[in-house]
C-alpha cells in the first residue's frame, strides 16, 4: 500500500491554524498592553519634560540671584523673595488658576515671577507666568545663598514632583 507521506491532513491544518491564532491573539494582547504602558510612560516623560523646561527657567532665575530674603534660613514658605544680579527684588509666588482648576477638577495655581525695578509703579512686563498648573510649591532656604524648591505639577497626563537644590551664584555682591 502506498504511504501517504506528503502534504498535511485537515486535522493538522486546523491544529496549526488554531495554534497560530492562539499565539497571535496572545501576542497582540501583549503588544497592546506594552504599547499602552509605553504610551503612558511617554506621556509622563512629556509631562516631565514640559515641567522641567519651566523649572529650568526658575532655576536659571534663582541661580542668577545674590541672596534669599524670604524664606530665611531653615524656613519653608510657599513663596520666595530674593535679589537678582542687579539687586532688584524678585518674588516667586502662586496665584489660583481658575480655568485650569475647572479643567482639571482640582485646585491648581499659576507660578508667577514679579520683579521690582524701583520705578515705584506696577509694570506688566515685570510679571511673568512661569507655569500654569502647580498643585503645590515649597521653598526651603538652606542658607542665605541656597534654596530647595519642591513643586508638584499636575496635568491631564498625571502628576510630576520636582525637587531641586539651587545655589544663588552671585554672592560676590554681598560678601
Amino acid at each position: 500500500m502506498r504511504k501517504l507521506s506528503s502534504g498535511t491532513t485537515l486535522v493538522e491544518v486546523l491544529v496549526v491554524i488554531g495554534l497560530i491564532g492562539l499565539i497571535g491573539v496572545a501576542g497582540m494582547r501583549f503588544f497592546t498592553s506594552v504599547n499602552t504602558s509605553q504610551k503612558a510612560f511617554s506621556q509622563q516623560a512629556i509631562l516631565q519634560m514640559e515641567s522641567r523646561k519651566a523649572f529650568d527657567q526658575i532655576i536659571d532665575q534663582i541661580r542668577e540671584g545674590t541672596d534669599v530674603i524670604r524664606p530665611v534660613t531653615g524656613e519653608t514658605l510657599h513663596y520666595m523673595t530674593f535679589r537678582d544680579l542687579i539687586n532688584q527684588v524678585n518674588m516667586l509666588y502662586l496665584e489660583p488658576n481658575k480655568e485650569e482648576s475647572n479643567r482639571l477638577k482640582q485646585r491648581v495655581y499659576r507660578l508667577i515671577s514679579y520683579c521690582n525695578d524701583f520705578s515705584g509703579i506696577y509694570k506688566k512686563e515685570n510679571e511673568k507666568i512661569l507655569h500654569n498648573s502647580i498643585k503645590q510649591l515649597r521653598f526651603t532656604s538652606l542658607s542665605p545663598s541656597s534654596v530647595q524648591v519642591n513643586a508638584t505639577v499636575v496635568s491631564d497626563k498625571g502628576e510630576y514632583q520636582f525637587l531641586a537644590h539651587v545655589g544663588l551664584l552671585n554672592v560676590g555682591g554681598i560678601e
Binding site: P96, Y114, N116, Y122, K123
Partner: peptide
C-alpha cells in the same frame, strides 16, 4: 514691590 494684588481663590475646589 508694587506688584499686582494676588487673586483670591474662588472656593470651587
Amino acid at each position: 514691590l508694587n506688584g499686582r494684588p494676588i487673586e483670591a481663590p474662588d472656593g470651587s475646589f
